[in-house]
Computed example of a mutant assay.
Amino acid sequence: MNGSGKEHIIKSYDDELARLTGEIVRMGELAATQLESAIDVVERRDERAAQRVVANDDAIDQMEQEISHDVVRLLALRAPIAGDLRNVFAALRIAADIERIGDYAANVAKRSIPLSMVAPVAPASGLAYLAELAAEQVREVLAAYNDRDTERAYQVWQNDVALDDAYTGYFRQLLTYMMEDPRNITPCTHLLFMAKNIERIGDHATNIAENIWFQVHGEPLNKQRIKRDFTSNPEPGRLDE
């Protein structure tokens, strides 16, 4: 094959990879918007709008399937190796993480429906701050992926501690409300599940950051990161501090 033929193949692969990256970034933006829409219906206590948010998750699922097909086609037609292969597999893994982010956003919207059927509780307003942190993490890591910016990805990876701290504080607040008045147990239980879904969105953003790091450097992100979600396995006395 002459030089121009090789250049054509390389350019064709680069074009396909750029298109794939663009699709993943659009998918991620849709997932972040879904989360914001879910929080909006929580605040408005709007059952119909919540059902629309849940239904919109199908669009994210469809995009993930299309991206998977594109990855298989790239593997079959281009037979990428080394760094090119990492690019393709990173796309597949990141798309899967975004699909899960969309699922968690839909779960928040689903929980808002029974929550809207009981008397409002004050802690419900605190959910928006968690969602704001999570959506920012998602958008930052998408920008890092689009630019292959490992330092920005690493910052997202480190910043997950802020969401963990906020989630743990919110968890404590909800427990206090439930202990003070049994009538708060049902709405606060819904809020606990919703908050956990949002915290998990942050975890998937860190997964994406790790994939970006491996995609660019060809090695795992092995740095130490503080993890401050103590709600699943609290240290003795931790929740009483």
Rank of each mutant, 00 (worst) to 15 (best):
L127N: 06
I81W: 02
G102E: 03
L163V: 01
I98A: 05
A153G: 12
A134M: 00
D160K: 01
A105K: 03
R86Q: 07
L174R: 01
E136R: 11
A122K: 12
M179R: 14
L77I: 13
A106D: 02
E180V: 01
A124W: 02
M178C: 11
S125K: 08
L175I: 07
P182H: 09
D147N: 14
A144V: 03
V88M: 09
S112D: 05
D147K: 14
Y104K: 06
P123G: 06
L127S: 07
L74W: 06
D70N: 13
A124E: 13
L174T: 01
Y154E: 15
R78K: 15
R152M: 11
M178Y: 09
G169E: 13
V161Q: 11
A91K: 14
A162V: 08
Y170I: 00
D164C: 02
E136N: 12
A95C: 10
L115E: 04
V71Q: 14
Q173K: 08
A144M: 08
R172E: 15
T168P: 03
L74Y: 09
P80A: 05
Y145D: 01
A90L: 07
N107Y: 06
V88D: 03
N146Q: 15
L174H: 10
Y145K: 10
A119Q: 15
E132K: 04
T150Q: 05
S112K: 03
K110D: 03
V71W: 11
V156H: 01
E140H: 11
S116W: 12
D147C: 05
L115I: 11
R100S: 08
